[in-house]
Design a protein around this nucleic acid. Sequence first.
RNA 1: GGUGAGGUGGGUGAGUGGCUGAAACCACCGGUUUGCUAAACCGGCGUACUCUGAAAGGGGUACCGCGGGUUCGAAUCCCGCCCUCACCGCCA
Length: 427
Amino acid sequence: MLEINLLRSDRNRIVKALQKRNLPTEKLELVDQVVSKDDLRKSLQTELDQLLNQVNEASKEIGRMFKEGKQDRANELRNMVNETKQRSKQLEEEMKAVKEEIAQLLLDIPNIPHESVPPGSNPEDNEIYKDWTKPFPQLDENALPHWELAEKFNLFDLKLGVKLTGSGFPLYRGHGARLQRALINFFLDQAISAGYEEILPPLLVNEDTARATGQLPDKEGQMYMAERDNLYLIPTAEVPITNIVRGEIIEEAALPLRMAGYTPCFRREAGSYGADVKGLNRVHQFDKVEIVQISHPDRSYETLEEMLGHVSMLLDKLELPYRILRLCGGDLGFTSALTFDFEVYSAAQSKWLEVSSVSNFETYQSNRLMLRFRSQDRKPQLAHTLNGSALALARVVAALLENNQKEDEILMPEVLHNYTGFSSIRI
RNA sequence: GGUGAGGUGGGUGAGUGGCUGAAACCACCGGUUUGCUAAACCGGCGUACUCUGAAAGGGGUACCGCGGGUUCGAAUCCCGCCCUCACCGCCA
């Protein structure tokens, strides 16, 4: 959520920045609606506070009267207070309603794009922030896409996944399973040496948690739910990890907080069929190591750079061709101020696959989370939150398999040898 | 799942209807003292909203797990929920 005070004090800049997202004009009008609703809220607040003050004062007086034995005067006051209370009850209800309306409106206003976000409405307008300049892997004419390699080398089985669960739930086996485990460990080790604290969070979260990071109410349909217990399967480790600091006030000296965690991720992802969802390109369950930072507002863009560096380093070590995109206004996530996507080139499909998304949410998340830090002048202030995938496994695996295939084996990048226990996959 | 006890500020913990936004102690911050450190002493020390003020500040309201209720008045009484601990049951 955006802060109302910001909408109030910097209205024109915000509306202008929001235009980059290609919002329909009625969305832009929400800004003014929120502010005027909030004006109403303020005046109700003032009036209500005054009434309650009257009640409090009178109640004290009644106590005194009783002590002094002035029953009549006390009863008089009692009647007066009862009247005042009726009015204050009304006001309270009005207040509650107005507050809910404001909250609802705020939920519909996306984050303000960073000034560097390019205008544009669809993925073609994303800016190539860093392109791949070296040659792509040269494959044989009869090179196979990863889902065929999987069959040939017995690495994962989508049909078995269907048998056990349903489509989009891959079952990895043999070298395929070991490669998953190797990548997870590799990514975690890299995060730890970059100073992240390793977190192994719960995979199911309650409603409060899902709400605080914005999965509810907007993306309710994207999550699997355990209805009997009112719990949600996490779509990303971002949800439990960011919620660790929900409602906290952190000492400034402790910033930045660096946390990283491996979890499976569950996504319902209704819709969309065809080539884009073949093999491991898009699945309902996949593994991911997520990195999260809680940063000082003055330094959050340095933090973002640092995280980009971390993800680049991982891909360099895996020897995968990749490019970095700066998302345009139209493609930018609802809650993000600036997002960079990492795409890996999967040579047999001749396709760029998104393997990481690194974002700075500025105070948009922390405002909802009530996540603050104590600044030098002792005043609590909203912190900035950032996160990124480092990395999502399924598509990395797709690219590794496709790019490194030889006639009767698939070579593993050197950095993984100690993790996999093998340097190539053979039949 | 059953029974019992309990959830108070950063921590320990007092508080069973008005004088309690909350004692005391610890931690923390500022000061005095001191060659330095420590001790001692003095002072400060929650959050949100709101009004007022140029600001410093001052006033008000709410918050003692969460939500409702009783009452002129609730941390304190009543109801529902959540959670923690102990014992029993079950269990990787």
